[in-house]
């Protein structure tokens, strides 16, 4: 059975792109359009990997990532960030949240900045979950 990958992004074009890359490489994609929906699907579908955007309406990727990594049941699920936001900015925002009383959380398994080549995305997914 192929591995399930949850794509969380509000941009339908990005989802379409990611879904196609996943399908082409033999994974089963699931789509969520914002952070809130993303969390719902993580709990329901128990995906093997999450492809996560940062800037989204409702709950942002910064929040969702933090919620995932502080949940004992979900923290093991690998996360690849895929965003127009620079890796540095994302890590800094997490650091600020930690300083404001949040828990220390690990960095994502991989961080890809848009635009990303399909080959690179596929290679990264393979490296993280095989």
């Amino acid at each position: 059975m192929s591995k399930k990958v949850l794509v969380v992004d509000d941009d339908p074009d990005v989802r379409l792109f990611s879904v196609n890359v996943l399908e082409e490489n033999g994974y089963t994609p699931i789509e969520a359009t914002d952070g809130e929906e993303g969390m719902k699907f993580v709990k329901k579908e128990k995906p093997d990997l999450i492809l996560l955007d940062v800037l989204m309406p409702k709950e942002s990727g910064v929040r969702l990532y933090r919620n995932l990594k502080t949940d004992a049941a979900l923290k093991k699920i690998p996360v690849i960030m895929l965003s127009g936001i620079a890796r540095k900015s994302f890590l800094r925002s997490q650091k600020v949240l930690t300083q404001f009383g949040g828990a220390e959380i690990p960095e994502p398994d991989a961080y890809l900045e848009k635009p990303v080549e399909p080959e690179e995305l596929a290679k990264t997914i393979k490296k993280v979950i095989g």
Binding site: D11, D13, V14, F17, P115, E117
Partner: peptide
């Protein structure tokens, strides 16, 4: 983001 759309 737009570039990403084009690549997609």
């Amino acid at each position: 983001n737009i570039l990403h759309g084009f690549k997609g």
